[in-house]
Design a protein around this nucleic acid. Sequence first.
DNA 1: CTGTTAGCGCTTTCAT
DNA 2: ATGAAAGCGCTAACAG
Lengths: 320, 320
Amino acid sequence: MTVSRALRSDALVSKQTRDRILTAVNQTGYVPDATARMFATGRTGFVAVLVPSLNNSNFADTVRGLSEVLDPAGVQMLLGDTEYTLSREESLIATLLQRRPEAIILTGGDHTARTRKMLAAANIPLVETWDIPKEPLGHLVGFSNREAGAAMVRYLHKRGRRRIAFIGGATNTDTRGSERRAGYQHAVHELRLPVGRIVALGKPSASMSHGAKALDLMLARWPDTDAVLCVSDLSAFGVLAECQRRGIEVPNRLALAGFGDFEVARCCHPPLTTVAVDCVGIGRRAAHIVLDALEARRRGEVPAPETTIVEFHVVERETA
Amino acid sequence: MTVSRALRSDALVSKQTRDRILTAVNQTGYVPDATARMFATGRTGFVAVLVPSLNNSNFADTVRGLSEVLDPAGVQMLLGDTEYTLSREESLIATLLQRRPEAIILTGGDHTARTRKMLAAANIPLVETWDIPKEPLGHLVGFSNREAGAAMVRYLHKRGRRRIAFIGGATNTDTRGSERRAGYQHAVHELRLPVGRIVALGKPSASMSHGAKALDLMLARWPDTDAVLCVSDLSAFGVLAECQRRGIEVPNRLALAGFGDFEVARCCHPPLTTVAVDCVGIGRRAAHIVLDALEARRRGEVPAPETTIVEFHVVERETA
DNA sequence: CTGTTAGCGCTTTCAT
DNA sequence: ATGAAAGCGCTAACAG
């Protein structure tokens, strides 16, 4: 017991005893077993983090923000990649909960019934990010992807565009993408522009090559389109490159906007008009909420759910 | 006890009992405690994985390959992001080892003395990836970045280029980048081309904007350069975009090659000549080596270090 | 300031 | 096929 205290540098050990202990520890090469400690204290120091994709600079940035705050606090993230599907989210959560994370951070607010049940049963602080679910399960750090989509349509309209198309994924598993599309639909309807110019193609994790293919379909179907809003900068860049290949002038003949303010959007020529969100900030904020919630728990309090709405900005560049 | 057996799908439970148990488990929402299991068995099911950056599609792919093999085996990765520095690698390892990973997977073969000491003391299977260190600490899954750099120079030479420059990071903390540069130096010397046309600028994680800035310096210093080899496709793309901005024809006036076969290299216009490596395959292979090593340990064997040299390919596209 | 007791939730081993 | 006993290494709580 005294050894345990001495190694945790508890004050209540005499210097003499502590020295004797440390000497013995050095001689024997004793290393405390963190697993046993976790087991005895019931505190694992784990926080589970689920993102749709690690190979996406936006989410990787959020993870960076989390890491920035969680690492110094001695918290170990358990990272899971849902691959944009709710069923994988479910099975990852089932696995991760076995590790007894002290909190869990999710992307989006759409989950299977079994996921919601498991989360409720786990009874740990929960943060949903990157979206604004109607009924958050716990804390929230997000923004309205629907509003972002609508805002970009309004921007394009203000710039004189009247026949605006949307390029995104075919499935609805990318909730944030679907929300942006819903915002697009809402805004074109509101502005009395032609509606339904939607190319839904491929799986989420909207890729650059996806954009190139989608442009094809879009031009075949609605050749007079004068602006394209893409679900992500990556597909937008694919569209841009394809336009250059075909000699379609951007923005003169076709305006182009993306989402996410990826590095490629800033650096490509011409640079892409897009929507910027503070991805790192989302991670930092979520991490602080988690640390606060854990601190509160330790004091026996049950903290009220916190909601942080993150701002987004239309970044005007040269493609629209 | 029977519950424990049933949930681990031990055969020695009657179907009837097992069904009763599973029903009860579903009703109560019982989740086995992995910490207690770890404690009882002495096996944590953790594997520590360190990469220079998660926000890099090459390494993210390697992590995907790892995950593909490790997840089904019930192994939980503990991911660490070294941010391309050996000192952060060291402190991450110190932290991660407390979690008692059963194996550890590193990027590169360059480590601090204290890191090497800790790793030796941990006495667990170790895999170094993405490089070929002179004295591997354990298993190895990598390729020669130096050879890759040299191969691209030879390719450019074969295509008639004679004044070849290299664009990369200023620091040496990106070991793979430094190796590619060394390969460049070796090859230009061997081919009796002008040597030392090196722009070393900025921190690693070579970015697109880095490429644009570097082109500036490069042209100012060696205006007659007819080919640029970049440490990464990202900086190469930055150079390409900057060339388009300035009206420098690629490849006529300036040939351009990158490294990594990032998606942007395939999709940009004109598509980038680059070096392709099977990043996902590196991850898969490393994961299999780890699983085999753990299996061997369980049988009391000490497996000999395995070395897998991964192939790389010069991918000829339109910029060189 | 130091020591004793009990127990965290599982698995291993042995008994039935 | 199922159950009982013991113990993994640590720490919380209490006693001296």
